[in-house]
């Protein structure tokens, strides 16, 4: 119990930390990509602050990959600029890119070389990365045993880990992951999520994750940037922060439905939204802080409670609301 509280405390602290004062790591300033008169990405602007994990969400073809490729200089911007730690990708590429570690789509390596040889390739392309740092990142992703095997013998999960090792090598301030769980099995996805948390904590860096897997984003990110047809739709906060002072909607299953309804209607703190007599359930809306009081009131009234479920509006519903269904333009 104590431990859970502690965990929640640290989670909260983490969420508070990347507040207004945290320095900007990435600034997207009106970035556009126009191909043959058509805007693939249209005047996109958003920021990422130190220590934040931000999700870049959008339906297929929304321009997520194009956006990420522009951030990393793989694709030229038609308009606007991306600033990394204050350095422009457009005019000061080498200094800006030095702060980025990225995996863009699938992590692809030289298959005939060993994992270590592949990492050494990137060590030679980066200033101030010694062998000790290689060992450090290899240990962080847990690939010690596989370092001397050829990459062609690696599973997709191992390649993802080597991809992360590669991205972390130069001690980036911003880690960019494009569809990091693509093609991974559930165990791999979970593992990936744990790595990302560890990395954010251990290395203290900001992470940008692009995905169309909403549940993934919801579980790990502090904020989500939603884009559609290359345009910014909304930037939303995720996780605890949002819940703190908000109203919650609960479904309560009881043994005596009518008594429960009477009690709820008799109190000031909760509003009855509906009921389901066949399942002996009622739905109520109330402030988060008033939940214990309602439970006590039900208990005093002699109503037995079987379960209480939160009716959460999931990110998925929000997402469909924002993007107007599954239209792909």
């Amino acid at each position: 119990m104590n431990q859970i509280m502690m965990n929640q405390m640290t989670m909260k602290q983490q969420n508070v930390e990347p507040g207004k004062e945290a320095p900007l790591v990435l600034q997207m300033n009106g970035v556009s990509k126009i191909i043959k008169g058509k805007s693939i990405v249209d005047k996109l602007s958003f920021d990422i602050r130190k220590g934040e994990i931000v999700g870049l969400l959008g339906p297929n073809g929304a321009g997520k990959t194009t956006t990420i490729r522009m951030m990393t200089g793989l694709i030229r911007m038609s308009e606007g600029d991306v600033m990394i730690q204050g350095h422009s990708i457009r005019n000061d590429f080498k200094r800006a890119i030095a702060h980025i570690g990225a995996i863009i789509e699938n992590p692809e390596f030289y298959p005939y070389m060993t994992g270590l040889d592949n990492l050494k390739q990137y060590q030679r392309m980066t200033d101030e990365v010694n062998d000790e740092r290689i060992n450090e990142v290899v240990q962080l992703v847990g690939l010690q045993e596989a370092m001397n095997k050829k990459v062609k013998a690696y599973s997709l999960g191992m390649r993802q880990r080597l991809g992360i090792a590669q991205a972390l090598l130069q001690r980036p301030k911003l880690l960019i992951l494009d569809e990091p769980t693509n093609g991974l099995d559930p165990a791999g996805i979970r593992e990936m999520r744990e790595y990302m948390r560890t990395i954010a904590e251990v290395e203290g860096i900001s992470i940008l994750i692009s995905s169309h897997m909403l549940a993934e984003i919801e579980q790990i990110c502090h904020r989500a940037v939603v884009i559609q047809n290359g345009k910014l739709v909304t930037v939303t906060k995720l996780g605890e922060e949002q819940e703190a002072a908000a109203q919650v909607k609960l479904t309560i299953r009881v043994d005596l439905l009518q008594s429960a309804i009477d009690i709820v209607e008799g109190t000031e703190i909760a509003q009855l939204n509906g009921m389901d007599s066949t399942r002996a359930e009622l739905t109520v809306t109330l402030l988060d802080s008033n939940v214990p009081a309602l439970v006590t009131a039900l208990g005093i009234g002699g109503v037995g409670i079987y379960r209480i479920t939160e009716l959460k509006q999931s990110l998925e519903e929000d997402f469909l609301k924002w993007t107007g269904g599954n239209l792909i333009a």
Binding site: T72, L74, I97, A98, I104, E105, E108, Y110, P111, Y122
Partner: peptide, 14 residues
């Protein structure tokens, strides 16, 4: 072909 171009070009080298 291998896709390694992506890792190659996101380094601090021109």
């Amino acid at each position: 072909g291998q896709g390694t171009i992506k890792f190659l070009l996101i380094r601090a080298r021109s």
